[in-house]
């Protein structure tokens, strides 16, 4: 379990993570979603104690990471980019890490086989492709058989087969009762893998919701309505959280209401409808809408302040 409370990190005058509070539960896959540069990797570094928070606190399995006597058995992490010496072989890299905890050599070989790096285990990692680097990172994360697994963009650079393998791996880890925390900037990837979503933008928490809710909300509340009395209909539907987008002639796209709500409101006002269709917003669109709203809100606030 990972628990962040008011987690904040400034780099100079730039605020990378801004008052994040969330809990990552065991037994499910939690997706950590946000555009590039939204603070995902920083949050993960804070969780591992590599960077110290400016304010707030984060614990893993009820303790700060650095207070665990056997950290590799608590959390296995794949960090962004490379965290391997390019002149060292994959085997020796993992061996050196294993030795800090007295993990036997046979475990290192086991994991190298598991991630499919057997052939290149004794080669220097400097020559590894991005995909091979990711596989090594995953082996590293699993080295200590950890209760919590945290992976930063694990499918980056993997081929479709590798992506499929990672999805199965994550689901398997969660099914065993482990806490699984995976970051991505791709909503579609998360929809396939995750059960729960933590969405951030500009370092702030935007959503903390189940994937099912997120998908349902994203696809239910856009309705295309066709009517000869569009102006009256528009006036009837107007309200907080409701917005309109122009569609083709005699039609209007209503955001923020369900098909049922639009139909009932039209009937109450005796407005003739020629068509009433729920629109399937794609997940990627929904995600972008969500983050865009957040960004616009931020810009407006800045304007108001200025």
């Amino acid at each position: 379990m990972i628990r962040a409370q008011d987690l904040t990190k400034d780099y100079g005058s730039k605020r990378a993570v801004d008052g994040l509070s969330f809990t990552v539960q065991p037994g499910i896959v939690t997706g950590f979603l946000g555009p590039n540069g939204s603070g995902k990797s920083t949050t993960m570094r804070l969780i591992l104690g590599l960077d110290a928070p400016t304010r707030g606190d984060v614990t893993v399995n009820e303790r700060r990471y650095r207070d665990h006597p056997s950290p590799l058995h608590e959390v296995g992490a794949l960090l962004e980019a490379r965290s391997v010496h390019t002149g060292r072989s994959a085997y020796n890299h993992l061996l050196a890490l294993a030795q800090t905890h007295g993990i036997p050599k046979r475990r290192v070989s086991e994991l190298i086989d598991l991630v499919g790096l057997h052939e290149v285990a004794s080669k220097r990692t400097g020559g590894f492709s991005l995909g091979m680097g990711q596989r090594l990172g995953i082996a590293q994360a699993l080295l200590g058989d950890p209760k919590t697994v945290m992976l930063d963009e694990p499918v980056n650079g993997l081929d479709p087969e590798g992506i499929h393998w990672v999805r199965n791996l994550l689901r398997g880890l969660a099914a065993e009762g482990r806490t699984v925390f995976v970051s991505s900037h791709l909503m579609t990837e998360m929809a396939l893998t995750a059960d729960h979503l933590i969405v951030i933008g500009k370092g702030k928490l935007i959503a903390d919701t189940s994937v099912d809710d997120f998908v349902a909300r994203a696809s239910q509340k856009v309705v295309l309505v066709r009517s000869p009395e569009l102006e009256r209909l528009r006036a009837t539907l107007e309200g907080p959280g409701v917005s309109f987008a122009p569609a083709e002639r005699d039609a209007l796209e209503v955001h923020g209401l369900t098909v049922e709500q639009v139909g009932e409101a039209a009937a109450d006002a005796s407005i003739v409808l020629h068509g009433l269709t729920p629109q399937q917003a794609s997940l990627e669109e929904a995600f972008m809408n969500l983050t865009r709203d957040e960004l616009e809100f931020a810009t407006e606030t800045e304007k108001a302040v200025a």
Binding site: G102, N168, G172
Partner: peptide
């Protein structure tokens, strides 16, 4: 089927003599 990772039957703590060995390996 989900990928299963083999279980580790030992749990070791970080200790100085272990870090010494690890740094030697590096």
């Amino acid at each position: 089927p989900p990928v299963r990772i083999p279980h580790l039957d030992v749990t070791g703590r970080v200790a100085f003599h272990r870090i010494l060995l690890s740094e030697w390996t590096k």
